[in-house]
Structures are given as C-alpha cells and as structure tokens.
Design a binder for these strands. Structure first.
Lengths: 199, 199
DNA sequence: CCTACCGATCGGTAGG
DNA sequence: CCTACCGATCGGTAGG
C-alpha cells in the first residue's frame, strides 16, 4: 500500500542510470550518451530510462553533478584536519593527482573530458562543467592566498600564476595518463608541482 | 574534352569539405561531424560530400592530417635558420604557444580537442591523433637532447621531465584559452616555460 | 555532383 | 517500467 519500497527501488534505478551515464560519458563524451544505449546496457527499455529525466540535457547535467560529488568525496578526507595554507594545498594537490592517475571512470576524469568536449558549445551543460572547474580553481587560489597571509609564501607571490601552472600540470597528467597510458605521469606532475607548494 | 578543369574543381571541392570539417570538428569533435551537416554548410547534396570519401572515418582521418599540416606550416617558419638545441626549442615553443592562443579553428587547436575526445576509443582515428601528438613530443625531446649534447643544459638534465612540463603547459594554455577565454593564458604559459628553456 | 532511397538509431511521447 | 509509436537524422548506396 505505502509506496515506500517502490520509491527506494526507483531511486536505486535512477542512481544506476546516472552511474552508467558517467562511465559512458568518460569515454564517449556527454554528447556521446544515448538513452537507448544506456537502456541496453542496463537491461531496461528506452522509455524506462527516459522516464527518469525531463530530457537528455537533464541526464547530462546529473552526470556532471554526480562526477563533482565523486571528486569531492575523493578529495575531502585528505583535507580534514589540515590547516589552511600550504599544508592544505599540498594535501589537496596530492589527492587531486592521485584521482587523475586512478579515476573512478573507465575513460578518465569526467570533468576533464567534459571540459574539453564542451568548451566550444554554449549552454547549461558547458556552464555546469565550467562551474565545476571553477570550484577547484577557487580552492587552489584560496589556499595559495592563505599561505601568503600566513607568511608561508612571500608577500609578492603571484598566486594566479602558480594556480595556472598547477591546473596545467593536472591537465598534462590527465593527457599523459589517458592518451599515452604513461605510468610515470603522476610522479612527473608531483615533481613539477613541488616547488610551487613550497615557500 | 580533357577533364582538366573538372579535376581541379573536384580537388577544390574536396579541400573545401576538409577545411569545413576541421572547423566543425574543432567545436563538435571528430565524432560530431556529419556528412549531411557538412553538405548543408557547403550548399551541396549529402551524396556530393560523401562521394569524396570512402566513409566517414576517412573524412575524419583527412581532417586530422590537414590539421597537422596547418600546425606544421604555422611552426616551420620559426624554426628556419635556428640551430638545434635551446635556440630552436625556444622558437618552437613560442610558435606553439602563439598557435594555441590564436588557432586557425573556431573551437581551438583541433589536435588538442581530438586528443581529449579520442583518448578512450581505440581505432585508426585515435592512432592518427596520437601519432600527431607524438611528432610534436619528439621535436621537444630532440631539441632538449641537442641542448644537453651542446652543453647548453647540464648533462644530468631530465629531458623527459622537462618535456612533460612543456606539454602540460600547452594543455593548460589550451584549456585556459578555450574554457575560460583567459587572455593572459599565453603569457602565463610563457613565463612558466622560461626556466625550462634556459641552462 | 544530383535525387531518391535503404535500414538503423536518435530524442521524445502516448497510453497503459 | 513496459510496448509501440512519432518525425528527424544518421552513414551509406543505387542509378544517373
């Protein structure tokens, strides 16, 4: 009588669809998603999948949101108990590089892939990807500024320049890992980042 | 009688199709190309476009080849008369960054976009993109090693590490320019690259 | 280089 | 969550 069990099952199905959508999108891109393809992967009918979303764009947006949540969950533990500044910045960058080395997706970090795919296409999906990227960039900048204020970095440190290089090392690590399957990419990025994380 | 004029016109049409395909692919990806879409853009019939290529994959491969040619043509003049080693490396990196800042495509460097798109999809298109990327990587490594042999860089310089960071700065510049439209990205990449191009 | 067509798949919906 | 369908578009081809 009460729809309790049915609601839980619906939620589980919804999550399974979004989970599969992230995996597919990490390889085929957010525009490579197809409702029929996901249905086939999950042993469902096309309408059964489509009924969980207003339209395909909502599915894409949910995949981006879920990927951001996975990233956040992967990074957050490393940040706990760390003081703002270099300590927290080092922990965040290390967790980030480890995430890029060993992503929870078959095609590498979904946000990196979506950023490259969507960078030329205006719209809500691009906006969501940019917002995700901005949040990480803001974290790096915030900790760099905290390090300057704490005297861990010289007062004339160019935080934006350091942030640019850290983001570049992440992009380069991702590219080397995905395109070249280079097992040393992570350590190369760490070595290049080290002088940026010191006073 | 002689098909001379017809052959030339056919070649021009072929080039126009590939040129348009590069522009579209720089925004929509190589998998975002459609023969019907190109036909509409060029005021041709779908079969008129399709007849120039054995199949869609051949069109994708020709777009990659043409993009490599455009890149090579943009870089080559800067390398003329430059001695192997740091002088040639600096000229190449400067031309490369300038190319990434101001690409001949509406969606940014096609090779960078295709590398991110294709990195998880085995096949001839991915192979062509990787080969293009490898050629540029080989150039950087060759000049770094020439600089070491010429005594411009210490004998214990880690050429692969420097190459990794230069490639990362290119990826970061491309991302900042395309995703963020950051007008300072080029200069930030140049500043970060400077210590890597010196003894 | 064209018209006209093929089967397959797309996103989305009606109706249950 | 299903079957069954809509119009549109896909890559590709026959025939001229």
């Amino acid at each position: 009588m009460s729809p309790r069990r049915s609601v839980a099952a619906t939620r589980d199905t919804h999550r399974a669809i979004v989970r599969r959508a992230m995996d597919v999108a990490s390889v085929e891109g957010l525009d490579g998603l197809s409702i029929g393809g996901l249905a086939s992967d999950l042993g469902m009918s096309k309408a059964g999948v489509a009924g969980h979303f207003a339209n395909k764009q909502q599915l894409q947006l949910e995949a981006v949101d879920a990927a951001v949540e996975l990233f956040t969950a992967a990074i957050a533990p490393a940040l706990r108990e760390r003081a703002p500044g270099l300590d927290r910045l080092r922990a965040g960058v290390e967790a980030w590089f480890a995430y890029l080395e060993d992503t929870p997706f078959p095609g590498g970090c979904l946000i990196q892939a979506a950023a490259a795919e969507q960078d030329g296409r205006p719209g809500p999906v691009r906006d969501a990807v940019v917002a995700a990227d901005d949040r990480w960039r803001a974290f790096l900048l915030r900790e760099l500024h905290a390090a300057i204020e704490a005297g861990e970095l010289p007062a004339d440190t160019d935080a934006e320049q350091r942030c640019f290089v850290l983001l570049a090392l992440g992009a380069g690590l991702n590219q080397a890992a995905q395109l070249r399957a280079d097992p040393r990419a992570g350590d190369r990025a760490r070595r290049a980042a080290r002088p940026l994380l010191d006073g």
